[in-house]
């Protein structure tokens, strides 16, 4: 479908709570770019805002839900997928989107993430990976690159990182993708495909914490950090170009895994309907 022909142009003001502005994100924070891409995807999918439920965890990433003009739920640290599971099962008529951070979903909430992937309940999980605990002032996270400085790794990080997409794929997520905030259109498309996918979709967004992580590691300001995404990632759009010296081990972006597995909610409802019919003597 050629979306541009069938749609009114995207205006972010139609999807945010203007009365909540100014937002609390630091200048240049990648999370704002991700929010824009998400709302753009929602616009293209023509999702009814009344039927949209956004469930977020705790962190700078978690604060995004408050800015979205929808049914929004800012839950507890690491647990938004658990809340979303209950909501999606109780209300299959809602589009459930989870916003989480790298600490939220890979550290404290790691157990919920792997089980959400395994269950394959219809929802989309957008994970904003800025390699740091932004909200709490810059402590090390399960995705902090090696030797990077954080307030709790004063001599540089020695812990290995999680590859969130490999983890989600191994745990059974039926749609897995990664994109960088530098590629807003690509990110929007990936989120759109993820939301459209019937099952559990996991989208990792490489986002920048400019104010804390960037500063502490001398990574420059927001433009420099965005540009360096090119060097460390492998955005789809740049895969075949020669203008950027990609690192040989660059993280891949785009759709990384897709599987056709039974969706948990439908499977459960079908089974339950049979039990109910029998109980009612039909």
């Amino acid at each position: 479908m050629n979306i541009s022909e069938t749609q009114t142009p995207f205006d972010i003001n139609d999807y945010i709570r203007l009365e909540q502005m100014p937002h609390f994100l630091c200048p240049g924070c990648g999370h704002g770019i991700a929010l824009r891409a998400l709302l753009w995807a929602i616009h293209e999918l023509k999702i009814d805002k009344d039927k949209l439920a956004v469930v977020s965890g705790i962190g700078c990433s978690g604060r995004l839900s408050a800015y979205i003009d929808a049914n929004t739920f800012h839950t507890t640290h690491g647990r938004p997928l658990a809340y979303a599971t209950g909501m999606a099962l109780a209300r299959p008529d809602l589009h459930v989107i989870v916003i989480t951070g790298d600490g939220d979903s890979l550290a404290i909430g790691g157990n919920h993430l792997i089980h959400a992937c395994r269950r394959n309940l219809n929802m989309t999980c957008m994970m904003l990976n800025n390699e740091i605990y932004g909200m709490t002032g810059g402590q090390v996270s399960p995705t902090t690159s090696s030797n990077r400085y954080t307030t709790t790794t004063p001599e540089g990080n020695t812990e290995p990182v999680f590859d969130a997409c490999a983890l989600a794929t191994a745990a059974g997520a039926s749609f897995v993708g990664r994109e960088v905030t530098m590629q807003v259109t690509g990110l929007k498309n990936l989120l759109r495909d993820g939301i459209e996918h019937h099952g559990f979709s996991f989208v990792e967004v490489i986002s920048d914490c400019t104010e804390i992580y960037g500063r502490k590691n001398d990574l420059g300001m927001s433009p420099e950090m965005l540009l360096s995404q090119k060097a460390t990632m492998r955005p789809d759009a740049y895969r075949n170009t020669v203008d950027v010296p990609f690192r040989p081990n660059a993280l891949e972006c785009g759709v990384l895994a897709k599987a056709d597995r039974p969706e948990y909610g439908c499977a459960t409802r079908e089974k339950n309907a049979r039990v109910q019919a029998k109980a009612e003597g039909k």
């Binding site: 439920a53 839950t75 809340y83 599971t85 209950g86 909501m87 099962l89 109780a90 209300r91």
Partner: peptide, 10 residues
């Protein structure tokens, strides 16, 4: 979490 989520759904 799931119980609270379901209840938030009504």
């Amino acid at each position: 979490g799931a119980v609270v989520g379901a209840s938030m759904g009504g």
